[in-house]
Amino acid sequence: MDEVVPIWLVWTIVSIVVTFAFPVISWALGRWYQDSLLNKLDVAEKNQMAAFGADQISSTSNKVSSLSAQSSVLLHTSIVVGPSMGQMFFMWSKSVFGGRLHSYDVVISYGRREVVRRLQEQATQLGCSSITNLRIQTSTVTFAKNSKGRTSSLEFLAYGTGIRK
């Protein structure tokens, strides 16, 4: 009975492992999932840019393209994205020292690119050949159960006027 590891030590080790295992697993899964999303987006964006034309989107109310327009339609689309729990945990620990938050960078740039891509898709479906006065807005979405009001996810809204020629 002397060689048996004391029970308190076992419990301490188990609790430490359980505490850190979840964020680490969540972070790793999230990293893998988000990388696959980004790779998919890279391909889709390239195809769509080639089809739609990168110069057909502008953030100004282009008078020239409006003059020759037949009709127009208001396009709007939004996407809600959130970082994984593991990323949030590591971000929280990183905020002690400050610096660049890579995880948020990835999530935010994904959301913003995806929402513009979807707007283009919508424009194509509605027969528009260009988008003018494109606006992108960001807002936070909080979960009801999250009483502290900590930011859990972000909403990106893109809207603009689609021009039919």
Binding site: S26, L29, G30, Y33, Q34, L37, S78, I79, V80, V81, G82, P83, S84, M85, G86, Q87, V107, Y110, G111, E114, V141, F143, K145, S152, S153, E155
Partner: peptide, 15 residues
């Protein structure tokens, strides 16, 4: 959506 938060990414229900 809370479960989806384990991996992150788009939360379709909210969208």
């Amino acid at each position: 959506a809370g479960l989806k938060n384990i991996v992150g990414g788009e939360l379709k229900a909210y969208t």
